[in-house]
Design a protein around this nucleic acid. Structure first.
Length: 558
RNA sequence: UGGGGCGUCGUCAAGCGGUAAGACACAGGAUUUUGAUUCCUGCAUUCAGAGGUUCGAUUCCUCUCGCCCCAGCCA
C-alpha cells in the first residue's frame, strides 16, 4: 500500500476524533464532465481519510443543474472511481434524491423570514449586488410577506412562471463584505428535464443551499473542498445554523492540484476535446482518469502520487516528472520486458546460414527470475534501432559503428563489417555484420568486454504494429502563461505540436501478439508500452507509449 | 481600493519557541547482457522582507512586499 503522509486535514480529523467516535466524508462530483487527476487527489483524500479512521466516504453526485449534467458522465465517474480502487458499499448518493427535503428546507427558511422570492431580472440582481468595493442594496422584493413568499414559491414549483421570472433568495446582508452573503439565490426556475428526476421539478436548488444540507443529511463530519469555496464557508454555516440542522459538518478547504505541462480545469479540457485538439475525453494525452488509464498508467501509481504530493493550502504546480517517476517505479516492478524496434534498420549476419532459425531464451524480468523466460527468434536478418548505429560515432558511443563489436541482448556478439547505402540519397539501407558463434546467449568465455547491448528483433519472425509515441500535451510548464503579450492566457497556442508521433511500421517480437489492453510491457531500452484499448485490432495492432525510460545518453548528447 | 486565503531548496512538503525531515529534480561515483533498475555521496547557516518580544523565533507580535480567489438564476 502507498505510504501515508501527514497533513493539516489529518491533524484536524485526529483532534476531532478525540471527541467523536467516527468520521464520514464524501466525494461530491458534478456529473458534467470526466474526472481528471485533480479529482483523484480529492477522491484519495476523502476515501483514504475515511478508511484510515474507520469511517465512511459517500459518493454523491451533485446533480442540481440539469442544463449541464448528463447520465454518461455519471457512468464514467463511477467507472473511473472504481478503477482507481475505491468502494462505497451499495449506495450511491445523489443531491437530486434530496429535492423534496430541500424544498421543505426552503419553505422553512421562508417561514423563518430568512428567504424571499425576488422578481428582479438576473441583470438587476447583479446590479443590486454591488461590487467588490461597494456594498449592495436591498431588492425591492426583500420585504414581501411570508405568506406572499410561500405562495409565490409554491407557484414557482408548480410551473406557473417562465424561466427567470423569479428566484428564491436567502435574506442575509446586502452590505456584507463577502459577496456570497449578499442575499444569494438558492432556487431558480429551470423548465428542464433532469437525468434522474425527469420532469418532476421545474425549480432547482443552487449549490450553496444544496451542498451543506446534503452533507448534513448524510451526517458528514468533514466536508473537504477546494480553496475557492473558502468564501462560501460562512454561507455553508449560515444555512445550517439558520435551519438548525442536527448535523453541522466542518468544511475544510485545500489547494487543488496543478501539474506541469497540462491543464486541469474541466472547461479547458472540454475545449481541447470539443475543438479536436485531442480525440476524446480519454485521449491518452489528457490528464483525465480515462486518458491516463488508456495511456497505461496504473491506478496504484496515481494513488501513490496523490499521497506523495501531500495536502496543503498552498497553490502549487507539481512537476509532471514526479508522476512519471512514480509510474515508472510501479511499472518497473510489474511490467514484463519485451523487445521492439520502433525505427528499424536491417542487419544481415554474413556468416549465419541463410535458412537457420534459432530460438533463444530471454528473461521476462532481469531482477525477477520468477517471472520466467520466453523464446525469441534469431535469424540471418534482424532489425535494430536506427539510432543505435552511427557511421562516425562520438566518444563514448556504446552502440554499433563500423568495425565495432556489440552485444545483441540474449543473442550474440556481432561486429559491423559494412554499411550499405542508397547510391542516390546516401541513406543507410542496411548493415552487413558477422556474429561470433562462441557468444550464444550474449556471453563469451574469454570475458571480453563489449560495451554496448542492443535490443533487436528477427526480421522474418516479427510482427508489425503501429506505435503511438505520446509526449506532453503542452510545451510549457504552465500552459496558461504566454510569451506574446497580446495573447495572454491562451493555452491553446502552447499545445505541443509533437504531442503525438505515429510510427506505422514498428517491429515487435512475436510474443507481443498476446498483449491485451492495460497490460503494460517494457520495450527494453525504450520505455513502457501498452495496447490501445480503443483502436487496436488483432490484425492491426496499436501500442501506446505510456512513458519513456530515463535516457541518460540523450542527456549526455546535449 | 472591500472580503477571504497563501508565501520553508528548482518543484512538492514536514516543522506548531530549542537551533531546517522526506520525496522529485539536479551533480558526482559503484554495479549492470536495458547508457534502465539498484546502490552510495552531495545538495536551504536559512524559512518573502524589515522591525520587535525572548537566553533562544521558520514557529509569537507589528508593519511591508508578492501571489491566488470572490461581483453565475455554475459547481
Amino acid at each position: 500500500m502507498e505510504k501515508a503522509t501527514k497533513h493539516f486535514i489529518k491533524t484536524i480529523i485526529e483532534n476531532d476524533l478525540k471527541k467523536n467516535t467516527t468520521i464520514t466524508t464524501r466525494f461530491p462530483p458534478e456529473p458534467n464532465g470526466y474526472l481528471h487527476i485533480g479529482h483523484a487527489k480529492s477522491i484519495c483524500l476523502n476515501f483514504n481519510m475515511a478508511k484510515q479512521f474507520n469511517g465512511n466516504c459517500n459518493l454523491r453526485f451533485d446533480d442540481t443543474n440539469p442544463a449541464k449534467e448528463d447520465q454518461k458522465y455519471i457512468d464514467s465517474i463511477i467507472s473511473d472511481i472504481k478503477w482507481l480502487g475505491f468502494n462505497w458499499g451499495d449506495k450511491i448518493f445523489y443531491a437530486s434524491d434530496y429535492f423534496d427535503k430541500l424544498y421543505d428546507f426552503a419553505v422553512d427558511l421562508i417561514k423563518k423570514n430568512k428567504a424571499y422570492v425576488c422578481s428582479l431580472s438576473s441583470e438587476d440582481i447583479r446590479k443590486y449586488r454591488g461590487t467588490l468595493t461597494e456594498s449592495g442594496k436591498n431588492s425591492p422584493y426583500r420585504e414581501r410577506t411570508i405568506k406572499e413568499n410561500l405562495d409565490l414559491f409554491s407557484k414557482m414549483k408548480n410551473g406557473d412562471f417562465i424561466d427567470g421570472a423569479h428566484v428564491l433568495r436567502a435574506k442575509i446582508d446586502m452590505k456584507s463584505p463577502n459577496i456570497n452573503m449578499r442575499d444569494p439565490v438558492i432556487y431558480r426556475i429551470k423548465k428542464m428535464s433532469h437525468p434522474r428526476t425527469k420532469d418532476k421539478w421545474c425549480i432547482y436548488p443552487m449549490y450553496d443551499f444544496t451542498h451543506c444540507i446534503s452533507d448534513s443529511l448524510e451526517n458528514i463530519t468533514h466536508s473537504l473542498c477546494t480553496l475557492e469555496f473558502e468564501d462560501h464557508r460562512p454561507l455553508y454555516d449560515w444555512f445550517l445554523e439558520t435551519l438548525k440542522t442536527l448535523c453541522h459538518p466542518k468544511q475544510i478547504e485545500f489547494a487543488r492540484m496543478n501539474l506541469t505541462f497540462t491543464v486541469m480545469s474541466k472547461r479547458k479540457l472540454q475545449k481541447l476535446v470539443n475543438n479536436n485538439y485531442v480525440t476524446s475525453w480519454d485521449d491518452p494525452r489528457l490528464p483525465t482518469i480515462a486518458g491516463l488509464r488508456r495511456r497505461g498508467y496504473t491506478s496504484f501509481a496515481i494513488r501513490n502520487f496523490c499521497e506523495t504530493i501531500g495536502v496543503s493550502k498552498k497553490e502549487s504546480r507539481i512537476d509532471m516528472e514526479l508522476l512519471e517517476t512514480l509510474l515508472k517505479d510501479d511499472l518497473n516492478e510489474k511490467a514484463p520486458r519485451a523487445m521492439a524496434v520502433l525505427n528499424p534498420l536491417k542487419i544481415v549476419i554474413e556468416n549465419w546460414d541463410k535458412n537457420k532459425i534459432q530460438q533463444l531464451d530471454a528473461f521476462n524480468h532481469p531482477q525477477k527470475k520468477e517471472m520466467g523466460t520466453r523464446k525469441i527468434t534469431f535469424s540471418k536478418e534482424i532489425f535494430i534501432e536506427k539510432n543505435d548505429f552511427m557511421e562516425d560515432p562520438p566518444n563514448k558511443f556504446f552502440r554499433l559503428a563500423p568495425k565495432k563489436e556489440i552485444r545483441l541482448k540474449y543473442a550474440y556478439y556481432i561486429t559491423c563489417k559494412k554499411v550499405i547505402k542508397d547510391e542516390k540519397t546516401g541513406e543507410i539501407k542496411k548493415l552487413i555484420c558477422t556474429y561470433d558463434p562462441k557468444t550464444k546467449g550474449g556471453t563469451s568465455k574469454d570475458k571480453r568486454k563489449v560495451k554496448g547491448t542492443l535490443h533487436w528483433v528477427s526480421a522474418n519472425d516479427c510482427i508489425n504494429a503501429e506505435v503511438r509515441v505520446y509526449d506532453r500535451l503542452f510545451s510549457m510548464e504552465n500552459p496558461e502563461t504566454s510569451n506574446s503579450e497580446n495573447l495572454k492566457n491562451n493555452f491553446i497556442e502552447n499545445i505541443n505540436p509533437n504531442s503525438l508521433k505515429i510510427i506505422k511500421n514498428a517491429k515487435l517480437e512475436k510474443s507481443l501478439l498476446n498483449a491485451v489492453p492495460e497490460k503494460v510491457f517494457q520495450f527494453e531500452r525504450l520505455g513502457y508500452f501498452c495496447v490501445d484499448s480503443k483502436d487496436s485490432k488483432p490484425d492491426n495492432l496499436i501500442f501506446n507509449r505510456t512513458v519513456p525510460l530515463r535516457d541518460t545518453w540523450a542527456k549526455i548528447k546535449k
